[in-house]
Amino acid sequence: MRRPLRVVQWTTGNVARKTVRAVLARRDLDLVGCYAWSADKVGRDVGELCRLDVETGILATDDVAALLALRPDCVLYTPLRFDVDEVSRILRAGVNVVTSAEFLTGRTLGEDARATIRAAAEAGAASIFGSGMNPGFAQLLGAVATGVCEEVRHVRAVESVDVSLFASDSNQDGLGWGRPMGDPGHADAVRAAVAVFEDGVEVLADTMGIELDDVGCHVGFAAAVHDLDLPGRPIAAGTVAGLDLRYVGIVDGVEVLELHQRWVMSRELEPPMPVEHGYRIEVDGSPRITLTLGIMPDQPLETLTVEDLHGIGMTITGMPVVHAIPGVVAARPGIVTYADLPVVASPLTSAPGRRPTGSA
Protein backbone atom coordinates (compact mmCIF):
# COMPACT_ATOMS: atom_id res chain seq x y z
CA MET A 1 0.00 0.00 0.00
CA ARG A 2 1.23 3.48 -0.80
CA ARG A 3 1.36 6.11 1.93
CA PRO A 4 -1.76 8.15 2.69
CA LEU A 5 -2.01 11.40 0.74
CA ARG A 6 -1.27 14.47 2.84
CA VAL A 7 -4.20 16.92 2.87
CA VAL A 8 -4.55 20.51 4.10
CA GLN A 9 -8.05 21.83 4.75
CA TRP A 10 -8.45 25.46 3.59
CA THR A 11 -11.01 27.32 5.78
CA THR A 12 -13.39 25.81 8.33
CA GLY A 13 -16.89 26.84 7.25
CA ASN A 14 -20.03 24.84 6.55
CA VAL A 15 -18.61 22.63 3.79
CA ALA A 16 -15.40 22.03 5.77
CA ARG A 17 -17.39 20.44 8.61
CA LYS A 18 -18.20 17.65 6.18
CA THR A 19 -14.91 17.46 4.28
CA VAL A 20 -12.77 17.27 7.42
CA ARG A 21 -14.95 14.46 8.78
CA ALA A 22 -14.58 12.59 5.50
CA VAL A 23 -10.80 13.02 5.30
CA LEU A 24 -10.38 11.73 8.88
CA ALA A 25 -12.47 8.68 7.99
CA ARG A 26 -10.41 7.59 4.98
CA ARG A 27 -7.39 5.32 5.23
CA ASP A 28 -5.80 6.80 2.11
CA LEU A 29 -5.95 10.44 3.28
CA ASP A 30 -4.07 12.09 6.14
CA LEU A 31 -5.06 15.53 7.45
CA VAL A 32 -1.82 17.43 8.14
CA GLY A 33 -2.84 21.10 8.30
CA CYS A 34 -5.64 23.64 8.28
CA TYR A 35 -5.88 27.25 7.09
CA ALA A 36 -8.16 29.73 8.86
CA TRP A 37 -8.45 33.29 7.59
CA SER A 38 -9.93 34.82 10.76
CA ALA A 39 -7.62 35.61 13.67
CA ASP A 40 -9.97 34.17 16.30
CA LYS A 41 -9.64 30.69 14.75
CA VAL A 42 -5.84 30.61 14.64
CA GLY A 43 -4.36 28.16 17.14
CA ARG A 44 -7.58 26.20 17.65
CA ASP A 45 -7.99 22.51 16.85
CA VAL A 46 -9.70 21.83 13.51
CA GLY A 47 -11.97 19.32 15.26
CA GLU A 48 -13.32 22.10 17.47
CA LEU A 49 -13.67 24.54 14.56
CA CYS A 50 -15.58 21.96 12.50
CA ARG A 51 -17.81 20.94 15.43
CA LEU A 52 -16.47 17.40 15.68
CA ASP A 53 -16.37 15.65 19.05
CA VAL A 54 -12.72 14.79 18.56
CA GLU A 55 -9.34 16.50 18.88
CA THR A 56 -7.34 16.04 15.72
CA GLY A 57 -4.09 17.57 16.96
CA ILE A 58 -4.17 19.82 13.89
CA LEU A 59 -4.20 23.51 14.85
CA ALA A 60 -5.50 26.08 12.39
CA THR A 61 -3.07 28.73 11.15
CA ASP A 62 -3.11 31.72 8.81
CA ASP A 63 0.56 31.15 7.88
CA VAL A 64 0.37 30.09 4.23
CA ALA A 65 4.13 29.52 3.96
CA ALA A 66 4.06 27.16 6.94
CA LEU A 67 1.25 25.13 5.42
CA LEU A 68 3.02 24.84 2.07
CA ALA A 69 6.19 23.79 3.92
CA LEU A 70 4.27 20.73 5.15
CA ARG A 71 4.52 19.53 1.54
CA PRO A 72 0.87 18.44 1.27
CA ASP A 73 -0.23 16.43 -1.73
CA CYS A 74 -3.50 18.34 -1.92
CA VAL A 75 -5.31 21.36 -0.53
CA LEU A 76 -9.05 20.96 0.07
CA TYR A 77 -10.14 24.50 -0.79
CA THR A 78 -13.68 25.22 0.47
CA PRO A 79 -14.20 28.97 1.11
CA LEU A 80 -17.33 30.56 -0.33
CA ARG A 81 -15.35 32.59 -2.87
CA PHE A 82 -12.48 31.59 -5.11
CA ASP A 83 -9.28 33.68 -4.78
CA VAL A 84 -7.20 33.45 -7.95
CA ASP A 85 -3.98 34.76 -6.38
CA GLU A 86 -4.28 32.49 -3.34
CA VAL A 87 -4.97 29.37 -5.39
CA SER A 88 -2.20 30.24 -7.86
CA ARG A 89 0.29 30.42 -4.99
CA ILE A 90 -0.74 26.95 -3.81
CA LEU A 91 -0.49 25.44 -7.29
CA ARG A 92 2.82 27.11 -8.06
CA ALA A 93 4.22 25.50 -4.90
CA GLY A 94 3.49 22.10 -6.43
CA VAL A 95 0.36 21.36 -4.40
CA ASN A 96 -2.77 19.96 -6.05
CA VAL A 97 -6.10 21.65 -5.31
CA VAL A 98 -9.66 20.31 -5.11
CA THR A 99 -12.31 22.94 -4.56
CA SER A 100 -16.02 23.52 -4.03
CA ALA A 101 -15.56 27.30 -4.31
CA GLU A 102 -17.30 28.22 -7.58
CA PHE A 103 -14.58 26.85 -9.83
CA LEU A 104 -14.93 24.03 -12.34
CA THR A 105 -13.05 25.09 -15.46
CA GLY A 106 -12.28 28.77 -14.83
CA ARG A 107 -14.34 29.79 -17.86
CA THR A 108 -16.42 32.31 -15.95
CA LEU A 109 -13.43 33.88 -14.19
CA GLY A 110 -12.34 35.35 -17.51
CA GLU A 111 -9.51 34.32 -19.80
CA ASP A 112 -6.81 36.25 -17.90
CA ALA A 113 -7.64 34.57 -14.59
CA ARG A 114 -8.02 31.20 -16.25
CA ALA A 115 -4.63 31.57 -17.90
CA THR A 116 -3.08 32.56 -14.55
CA ILE A 117 -4.47 29.43 -12.87
CA ARG A 118 -3.36 27.19 -15.72
CA ALA A 119 0.14 28.69 -15.79
CA ALA A 120 0.55 28.29 -12.02
CA ALA A 121 -0.56 24.66 -12.20
CA GLU A 122 1.80 23.86 -15.01
CA ALA A 123 4.70 25.64 -13.29
CA GLY A 124 4.12 23.58 -10.15
CA ALA A 125 3.28 20.36 -12.03
CA ALA A 126 0.02 20.38 -10.06
CA SER A 127 -3.65 19.84 -10.89
CA ILE A 128 -6.79 21.73 -9.91
CA PHE A 129 -10.26 20.19 -9.90
CA GLY A 130 -13.56 21.81 -8.96
CA SER A 131 -16.94 20.27 -8.29
CA GLY A 132 -19.93 20.20 -6.00
CA MET A 133 -23.31 18.57 -6.44
CA ASN A 134 -24.55 21.02 -9.05
CA PRO A 135 -22.77 22.28 -10.97
CA GLY A 136 -20.32 19.41 -10.88
CA PHE A 137 -21.41 15.90 -9.97
CA ALA A 138 -24.79 16.28 -11.70
CA GLN A 139 -22.96 16.79 -15.01
CA LEU A 140 -20.97 13.59 -14.47
CA LEU A 141 -24.29 11.77 -14.02
CA GLY A 142 -25.56 13.37 -17.23
CA ALA A 143 -22.57 12.13 -19.20
CA VAL A 144 -22.75 8.64 -17.67
CA ALA A 145 -26.46 8.38 -18.56
CA THR A 146 -25.60 8.67 -22.26
CA GLY A 147 -23.32 5.62 -22.08
CA VAL A 148 -26.10 3.19 -23.07
CA CYS A 149 -27.30 5.26 -26.03
CA GLU A 150 -26.59 4.55 -29.69
CA GLU A 151 -27.45 8.12 -30.58
CA VAL A 152 -27.72 11.29 -28.45
CA ARG A 153 -29.44 14.51 -29.50
CA HIS A 154 -29.87 16.45 -26.26
CA VAL A 155 -28.94 16.10 -22.57
CA ARG A 156 -30.66 18.00 -19.77
CA ALA A 157 -29.69 18.06 -16.08
CA VAL A 158 -32.48 19.44 -13.87
CA GLU A 159 -32.21 20.64 -10.26
CA SER A 160 -35.61 21.43 -8.71
CA VAL A 161 -35.52 22.48 -5.05
CA ASP A 162 -37.31 24.50 -2.38
CA VAL A 163 -34.41 26.54 -0.96
CA SER A 164 -36.30 28.29 1.83
CA LEU A 165 -34.31 26.37 4.48
CA PHE A 166 -31.18 28.04 3.09
CA ALA A 167 -32.76 31.51 2.87
CA SER A 168 -30.28 33.18 5.23
CA ASP A 169 -27.15 31.68 3.63
CA SER A 170 -24.78 34.26 2.18
CA ASN A 171 -24.64 32.41 -1.13
CA GLN A 172 -28.26 33.50 -1.66
CA ASP A 173 -27.43 37.20 -1.44
CA GLY A 174 -26.74 37.76 -5.12
CA LEU A 175 -29.97 36.18 -6.36
CA GLY A 176 -32.17 39.14 -5.52
CA TRP A 177 -34.87 37.43 -3.51
CA GLY A 178 -37.57 39.98 -2.68
CA ARG A 179 -36.79 42.34 -5.56
CA PRO A 180 -39.81 43.73 -7.45
CA MET A 181 -40.97 41.66 -10.39
CA GLY A 182 -39.58 43.11 -13.61
CA ASP A 183 -36.89 45.06 -11.75
CA PRO A 184 -34.39 46.31 -14.38
CA GLY A 185 -31.05 44.52 -14.21
CA HIS A 186 -32.30 41.65 -12.04
CA ALA A 187 -31.74 38.98 -14.70
CA ASP A 188 -28.18 40.22 -15.29
CA ALA A 189 -27.51 40.15 -11.53
CA VAL A 190 -28.70 36.54 -11.32
CA ARG A 191 -26.52 35.54 -14.27
CA ALA A 192 -23.50 37.08 -12.56
CA ALA A 193 -24.28 35.37 -9.24
CA VAL A 194 -24.53 31.88 -10.75
CA ALA A 195 -22.11 32.24 -13.66
CA VAL A 196 -20.29 29.08 -12.55
CA PHE A 197 -23.12 27.10 -14.17
CA GLU A 198 -21.51 28.08 -17.47
CA ASP A 199 -18.54 26.05 -16.27
CA GLY A 200 -20.97 23.21 -15.59
CA VAL A 201 -22.10 23.21 -19.22
CA GLU A 202 -18.45 23.12 -20.27
CA VAL A 203 -17.78 20.16 -17.92
CA LEU A 204 -20.67 18.20 -19.42
CA ALA A 205 -19.47 18.98 -22.93
CA ASP A 206 -15.89 18.08 -22.02
CA THR A 207 -16.93 14.76 -20.50
CA MET A 208 -19.00 13.90 -23.58
CA GLY A 209 -16.31 15.05 -26.02
CA ILE A 210 -18.42 17.89 -27.45
CA GLU A 211 -16.97 21.17 -28.71
CA LEU A 212 -19.49 23.95 -28.04
CA ASP A 213 -19.93 27.06 -30.16
CA ASP A 214 -21.55 29.07 -27.37
CA VAL A 215 -23.25 28.93 -23.96
CA GLY A 216 -26.49 30.83 -23.41
CA CYS A 217 -28.52 31.69 -20.31
CA HIS A 218 -32.25 32.28 -19.79
CA VAL A 219 -33.73 33.56 -16.50
CA GLY A 220 -37.37 33.49 -15.37
CA PHE A 221 -39.02 34.79 -12.18
CA ALA A 222 -42.09 34.09 -10.07
CA ALA A 223 -43.63 36.18 -7.29
CA ALA A 224 -44.67 35.23 -3.77
CA VAL A 225 -48.44 35.03 -3.34
CA HIS A 226 -48.18 35.80 0.40
CA ASP A 227 -45.61 37.52 2.63
CA LEU A 228 -42.86 35.04 3.52
CA ASP A 229 -41.40 35.35 7.02
CA LEU A 230 -38.14 33.51 6.35
CA PRO A 231 -35.26 33.68 8.86
CA GLY A 232 -32.84 36.36 7.74
CA ARG A 233 -34.64 36.99 4.45
CA PRO A 234 -38.28 38.13 4.61
CA ILE A 235 -39.94 38.30 1.19
CA ALA A 236 -43.00 40.47 0.57
CA ALA A 237 -45.99 39.30 -1.44
CA GLY A 238 -45.66 40.27 -5.09
CA THR A 239 -41.84 40.23 -5.06
CA VAL A 240 -39.47 37.58 -6.40
CA ALA A 241 -39.60 34.23 -4.60
CA GLY A 242 -38.95 31.85 -7.49
CA LEU A 243 -36.13 31.54 -10.03
CA ASP A 244 -35.96 29.42 -13.17
CA LEU A 245 -32.56 29.35 -14.91
CA ARG A 246 -31.50 27.54 -18.06
CA TYR A 247 -27.87 27.39 -19.12
CA VAL A 248 -27.60 25.88 -22.60
CA GLY A 249 -24.73 24.60 -24.69
CA ILE A 250 -25.10 25.39 -28.39
CA VAL A 251 -23.66 23.63 -31.47
CA ASP A 252 -24.48 24.88 -34.99
CA GLY A 253 -27.25 27.07 -33.58
CA VAL A 254 -28.96 24.16 -31.79
CA GLU A 255 -29.26 23.73 -28.01
CA VAL A 256 -27.73 20.31 -27.30
CA LEU A 257 -26.94 20.53 -23.56
CA GLU A 258 -28.95 22.14 -20.76
CA LEU A 259 -28.49 22.80 -17.05
CA HIS A 260 -31.92 23.71 -15.71
CA GLN A 261 -32.19 25.11 -12.17
CA ARG A 262 -35.50 25.86 -10.47
CA TRP A 263 -35.21 27.35 -6.98
CA VAL A 264 -38.21 28.54 -4.96
CA MET A 265 -38.74 30.09 -1.53
CA SER A 266 -42.40 29.01 -1.41
CA ARG A 267 -44.76 26.54 -3.09
CA GLU A 268 -47.31 29.33 -3.66
CA LEU A 269 -46.00 31.42 -6.53
CA GLU A 270 -47.34 33.34 -9.50
CA PRO A 271 -46.78 32.04 -12.09
CA PRO A 272 -46.58 28.54 -10.54
CA MET A 273 -43.12 26.94 -10.34
CA PRO A 274 -43.56 23.34 -9.14
CA VAL A 275 -40.46 21.63 -7.73
CA GLU A 276 -39.57 17.96 -7.23
CA HIS A 277 -36.88 18.21 -4.54
CA GLY A 278 -34.19 16.39 -6.43
CA TYR A 279 -32.19 15.95 -9.59
CA ARG A 280 -33.22 14.48 -12.91
CA ILE A 281 -31.20 13.66 -16.01
CA GLU A 282 -33.05 13.51 -19.34
CA VAL A 283 -31.35 12.17 -22.47
CA ASP A 284 -33.10 12.62 -25.79
CA GLY A 285 -31.48 9.80 -27.69
CA SER A 286 -31.83 6.24 -28.84
CA PRO A 287 -33.02 4.97 -26.45
CA ARG A 288 -34.41 7.87 -24.38
CA ILE A 289 -33.01 7.85 -20.84
CA THR A 290 -34.33 9.33 -17.61
CA LEU A 291 -32.25 9.15 -14.46
CA THR A 292 -33.67 10.44 -11.18
CA LEU A 293 -31.47 11.12 -8.17
CA GLY A 294 -33.35 11.31 -4.89
CA ILE A 295 -31.47 12.35 -1.76
CA MET A 296 -32.87 11.20 1.58
CA PRO A 297 -31.49 11.48 5.13
CA ASP A 298 -30.15 8.33 6.81
CA GLN A 299 -32.19 8.93 9.96
CA PRO A 300 -35.89 8.79 10.91
CA LEU A 301 -37.70 11.71 9.31
CA GLU A 302 -39.34 12.69 12.60
CA THR A 303 -35.90 13.40 14.10
CA LEU A 304 -34.79 15.76 11.33
CA THR A 305 -33.89 19.31 12.24
CA VAL A 306 -33.22 22.29 10.00
CA GLU A 307 -29.53 21.87 10.82
CA ASP A 308 -29.67 18.22 9.68
CA LEU A 309 -31.20 19.19 6.36
CA HIS A 310 -28.64 21.94 5.88
CA GLY A 311 -25.92 19.40 6.64
CA ILE A 312 -27.13 17.15 3.82
CA GLY A 313 -26.66 20.04 1.40
CA MET A 314 -23.12 20.58 2.65
CA THR A 315 -22.37 16.85 2.39
CA ILE A 316 -23.35 16.56 -1.26
CA THR A 317 -21.34 19.72 -1.97
CA GLY A 318 -18.16 18.53 -0.29
CA MET A 319 -17.99 14.80 -0.98
CA PRO A 320 -17.42 15.00 -4.75
CA VAL A 321 -14.15 16.88 -4.17
CA VAL A 322 -12.97 14.77 -1.21
CA HIS A 323 -13.46 11.52 -3.12
CA ALA A 324 -11.72 13.00 -6.17
CA ILE A 325 -8.45 13.67 -4.30
CA PRO A 326 -6.57 10.47 -5.27
CA GLY A 327 -7.49 10.88 -8.94
CA VAL A 328 -6.56 14.57 -8.95
CA VAL A 329 -3.16 13.91 -7.36
CA ALA A 330 -2.48 11.36 -10.09
CA ALA A 331 -3.83 13.53 -12.93
CA ARG A 332 -1.93 15.56 -15.50
CA PRO A 333 -0.91 19.10 -14.48
CA GLY A 334 -3.39 21.90 -15.20
CA ILE A 335 -7.13 22.40 -14.93
CA VAL A 336 -8.81 18.98 -14.89
CA THR A 337 -12.47 17.94 -14.99
CA TYR A 338 -14.38 14.68 -14.68
CA ALA A 339 -13.22 13.92 -18.23
CA ASP A 340 -9.66 13.55 -16.90
CA LEU A 341 -10.36 11.44 -13.80
CA PRO A 342 -11.20 7.82 -13.07
CA VAL A 343 -14.65 7.16 -11.62
CA VAL A 344 -15.10 9.31 -8.50
CA ALA A 345 -16.62 7.11 -5.79
CA SER A 346 -16.70 6.85 -2.02
CA PRO A 347 -14.96 4.00 -0.19
CA LEU A 348 -17.45 1.37 1.00
CA THR A 349 -16.65 1.76 4.70
CA SER A 350 -14.86 4.21 6.97
CA ALA A 351 -11.55 3.36 8.60
CA PRO A 352 -12.19 1.63 11.97
CA GLY A 353 -11.50 3.86 14.93
CA ARG A 354 -11.05 7.03 12.92
CA ARG A 355 -14.60 8.10 12.20
CA PRO A 356 -15.30 11.32 14.13
CA THR A 357 -18.63 11.94 15.79
CA GLY A 358 -20.49 15.13 16.51
CA SER A 359 -23.17 17.39 15.18
CA ALA A 360 -23.53 18.10 11.48
Rank of each mutant, 00 (worst) to 15 (best):
E282T: 12
P184I: 02
P272N: 14
F197Y: 14
A126P: 10
M273N: 00
A66L: 03
A192H: 12
A119M: 00
R17V: 00
A16G: 11
L175V: 05
A145L: 09
E55Y: 09
M208S: 01
N134S: 13
V194E: 04
A223E: 12
V98A: 04
I90P: 05
N14M: 05
D173I: 09
D83E: 14
L24A: 06
V148N: 07
E150R: 11
V219W: 04
L204A: 09
V251F: 09
H277F: 04
G33R: 01
F197T: 08
V254F: 00
R280F: 12
V75P: 04
T292E: 15
K18A: 13
R118A: 15
V343A: 14
F103K: 00
G327K: 06
G220P: 01
T108D: 11
V163L: 07
L5K: 11
T56M: 03
I90S: 07
G200C: 12
T315Y: 10
G182D: 12
P300Q: 08
G132K: 02
V97H: 08
I281F: 07
V98P: 11
L204T: 06
A60E: 14
S127W: 01
G216I: 02
R27N: 09
L68P: 04
R191C: 09
T146M: 05
D213W: 12
L293S: 13
A222H: 08
E202Q: 10
R71Y: 05
V328F: 03
L141K: 08
F166L: 08
T305A: 01
V264D: 01
P356C: 07
I117D: 10
T317L: 12
G311R: 04
F197H: 15
G318D: 09
L230N: 12
C149W: 02
R51N: 12
L104F: 09
A324F: 01
A143G: 14
V321G: 08
C149S: 12
F221Q: 15
P272G: 10
V248I: 05
F197K: 01
E159N: 03
F197P: 00
S286L: 13
G132W: 09
S164N: 08
S100I: 04
P180F: 03
W263F: 14
T19M: 13
A121M: 10
D284I: 06
D229N: 15
V155W: 00
M296W: 05
A22R: 03
A126C: 05
D183K: 05
V196Y: 11
N14C: 03
A192V: 08
G358T: 03
P300M: 06
V161T: 08
V343S: 06
I289N: 01
V144N: 03
V98G: 10
E202V: 13
P274G: 12
A121F: 00
G33N: 09
N96W: 01
A138I: 15
G47T: 00
D83I: 06
L348W: 11
V225K: 14
D298G: 07
V225A: 14
L70Q: 15
L5W: 03
A351T: 15
C34R: 09
M296D: 15
V161Y: 15
V152K: 04
V95S: 12
R156Y: 00
A195C: 09
V158Q: 10
V275T: 15
S350I: 00
V7Y: 02
R156P: 07
N134A: 08
R354Y: 05
L24V: 01
P135F: 01
R179V: 14
G311W: 05
D62T: 14
G200F: 00
G57Y: 04
D173S: 13
T315G: 04
C50H: 05
D45F: 07
Q9H: 15
L245A: 11
